Computed example of a mutant assay.
Amino acid sequence: MTVQSAIARAAGFATEPVAIVWTDTKPEGALEFRPGVWGCVMWMYARVAKDKKTAVFTRETIGCIGAALGLGFGRPFERHSAKSEEGFCSFLSNGIEGAQDRAAYTAVVESGRDERNKKVLARGERLLKNPEVAKAFLAALPEYDIKEQYIVMMPLSQVGDGEEVKSVVFLADADQISALSILANYGTGTITERVTVAAGASGCQAIGACVYAEGEGERPRAVIGLTDITARRNVRKMLGKDKLTFAVPYSMFLEMETYVPGSFLESDEWKELIASE
C-alpha cells in the first residue's frame, strides 16, 4: 500500500504525513531508544517527519511514561521518577506544594536521578493547577494498553499492505493548519465540531491516544497538538518555532483526501498565499 497524500501536495507541505501503526512486526533499521533510557518521543516524530526515517517503540523502549500513556502501552506510573499515579499528579502540577503526603513525596524528590530531575519533581511541571486537576486530566485522557508488541511511526507512503494506520499526523504551519481545518469541515458545514485542540496533552498524547479515541467515535475530529511546551522545547532545533501537529484517524484522512479536487486548494487565492511565504 503506497499512499501519496493529495493534501500534502496541494497544501505545500515540506514534510510527508507520518503514520502511527500498531504491529507485531518490528521494522528493520528503525530508530529506537535504548531500553530504560529516557527520551522524548517527539524527537523521534521529528526525525520521521523531517528525515523520512522509521521509529519503533516497545514497552521497554518507549522513552518516557507520558509517552506510554500517549501511544498505548498502558499506565506504568511505577516506572516514572515520581513512583506512583499520586506522585505523577504532583509532578504534573505543583510538586511538593500540592502533594497529599508531602513527606512521602519529598522522599521521592530526594531519590531523583539527577539535580535537574529533582528540581522538576520538587516544583512540579506546573502544567495543571494542582494534583486534583491532574487526576481529572488523567481520567479524561483516553487509555490504551495494546496487545501488539510494537508501535511504529513511519512516513505514510511507507505503510505496508495489511498494516492498520491508527493516526495520520501532519506537521503544519499556520497557513496549513487553516487549510486542514477547512478540509475537516468541508463536507459537513460545521464550524466547531470537527476539530479540537488537545489542550494540556503531551505532544505524543495529541498524536496518539487522543486520535485513537476520535477514530472510535461516530463523528471523529482532527486533533491539533504540539501545544505541549516541553515537547516544543525538545523539537525546536529540529522543527523550528512555528509548527503544530494536526492529526486525524485514518478514515478521516481518507475522507479529507477526497475533498482536494475542486476545493480552495486549487484556487488562485491559495496558490498566492503559499507563494508569498
Score class of each variant (00 low, 15 high):
209 A>H: 05
144 Y>L: 11
113 R>Y: 15
35 P>L: 11
270 W>T: 02
75 R>P: 02
264 F>P: 03
151 I>S: 02
77 F>M: 09
269 E>H: 05
176 Q>G: 01
180 L>G: 01
274 I>Y: 00
184 A>E: 01
210 C>Y: 05
13 F>E: 00
274 I>M: 00
170 F>P: 00
265 L>N: 02
122 A>Q: 09
94 N>Q: 06
176 Q>L: 00
121 L>F: 02
123 R>D: 13
105 Y>M: 12
43 W>E: 10
211 V>F: 04
157 S>K: 11
101 D>T: 07
271 K>H: 00
168 V>E: 01
78 E>W: 12
30 A>S: 13
236 R>A: 14
185 N>D: 12
193 E>T: 12
12 G>L: 00
220 P>L: 08
38 W>Q: 12
137 F>V: 03
4 Q>T: 14
218 E>D: 13
116 R>E: 14
14 A>M: 04
76 P>W: 07
75 R>Q: 14
156 L>S: 06
188 T>G: 10
166 K>D: 02
179 A>W: 02
74 G>Y: 04
79 R>I: 06
180 L>H: 02
93 S>N: 08
256 M>Y: 05
201 A>P: 02
190 T>K: 06
18 V>F: 04
92 L>W: 01
165 V>Y: 03
169 V>H: 05
188 T>M: 05
57 F>A: 11
249 P>L: 06
187 G>L: 10
111 S>A: 13
52 K>G: 05
79 R>F: 14
244 L>N: 14
265 L>D: 00
